[in-house]
Design a protein around this nucleic acid. Structure first.
Lengths: 216, 216
DNA sequence: CCGAAAACCGTACTGGAGGTACTGTAAACC
DNA sequence: GGTTTACAGTACCTCCAGTACGGTTTTCGG
């Protein structure tokens, strides 16, 4: 029945915002059901315990994130055949997407769950690890495509560079939150982009020129 | 009286580990006093409420961190007069220091508190912001010293680059935690180092050669 | 050594939260 | 129209944050 998954989705939506603002342990079920307009019975109908809620949150977040990644870099793939340009354009689009969020990025669920790993069972923790590995693998794949054609200024490990991109995002989110400046996240994503660019562009080319090439 | 601050320090030590493992909201006072071997009265003698505990944790963490920064980059300053080399050597020492922690970095208190900011009052949140600003300012100062002598490949904002270094650290900590690989943090710190190096070294120089120059 | 402050201990309470357990029931679907 | 879905209602238990307040030991300054 459709009403069921609708309520479930509403709970997850409310829970995600609460978890990102206060942490998982400090998020009470009572608070969630109050905002969702249901009773405790309703909550436990959808999630047998809090760990199941965490699993649902993570699955939802991961799916949404993968969709965003696929959208952004899929779009980049439409615009160019060059694997290097694909990554550079994708990171630009990604950064623009983050800059467009009015209140700034609400936070990375994987990051906050990594900082509260003792609250979860092994299954959830492994899910967190697999999620991050998935992101790294996504970027690593693109970097390997680049390395098949381009020779970098210095020898690089694609895994390492993929992690650098992920670090700039999660680190950027934290800095944005800590400083209260939403602009830091897109800014740092562009720094990671610039890192990639410097590694593969033998000659220094200004960003304006790059943009013209990308637009072509 | 000395015994007082000793107990207080023990509480903070235990609380820090707990907060970094489970989050602030999920850390119970009962658990802290059990491990510290005191009663609830003793706890509330030192901290009138949980917010005061947070303040103590943050102050302690910040002071310890500043000491580490001063030590590492002070040492780098002894080894060279060149501001660029100072930053590069300092980041190397910093990364080595992080790699030397057996279980890996336990976590950044500022990061976890940023992800639970609704649990704290405005004073604590401003303290978090000021702490991060302090780190950024520390790195920005060194970058400005470099810019006074060196011309980078591309125009850079020292503030932005300083944030990149901070992002690589906090992002690296998260990746290390999420992946269960302590080595990711020092690895990513060296990636940030390499970023700085590429920005200021017009000619590509291999890391081995750089190390020889630094050792001289 | 003594008085006073510091550094706790003991106990008792309130309110809220996680979670369990069951019964009941309106609505949807087949 | 019967079964399943999707909840509501009620009651209960345990654990935790926080308050209150009186009592006790330890430490240090004089």
């Amino acid at each position: 029945m459709r009403k069921g998954i609708e309520t479930r989705e509403r709970i997850l939506e409310i829970a995600e915002a609460a978890v990102l603002a206060k942490g998982f342990g400090a998020t009470s079920i009572d608070e969630l059901i109050a905002e969702a307009g249901i009773t405790k019975s309703g909550f436990f109908y959808h999630f047998k315990d809090k760990n199941e809620l965490a699993r649902g949150l993570l699955a939802r977040y991961s799916a949404r994130n993968n969709l965003l990644l696929a959208g952004v870099f899929g779009r980049a793939n439409e615009l160019t055949e060059d694997p290097l340009q694909r990554l550079l354009i994708g990171l630009n689009l990604f950064a623009e997407h983050m800059a467009a969020i009015p209140e700034g990025h609400p936070g990375c669920l994987v990051a906050t769950m990594s900082y509260q790993d003792r609250l979860f069972n092994r299954e959830i923790r492994e899910l967190v690890t697999e999620t991050v590995k998935g992101w790294n693998g996504f970027f690593r794949g693109m970097i390997e495509d680049i390395l098949a054609i381009y020779t970098p200024r210095e020898a690089i490990d694609p895994d390492r560079l993929a992690r650098t991109i992920c670090c700039s995002i999660d680190g950027g989110i934290i800095m944005s939150k800590a400083l209260g400046q939403p602009g830091v996240l897109p800014e740092q994503m562009l720094m990671a982009r610039n890192y990639v660019k410097m590694l593969f562009h033998p000659v220094t080319v200004h960003a304006v020129q790059i943009e013209e090439v990308e637009a072509a």
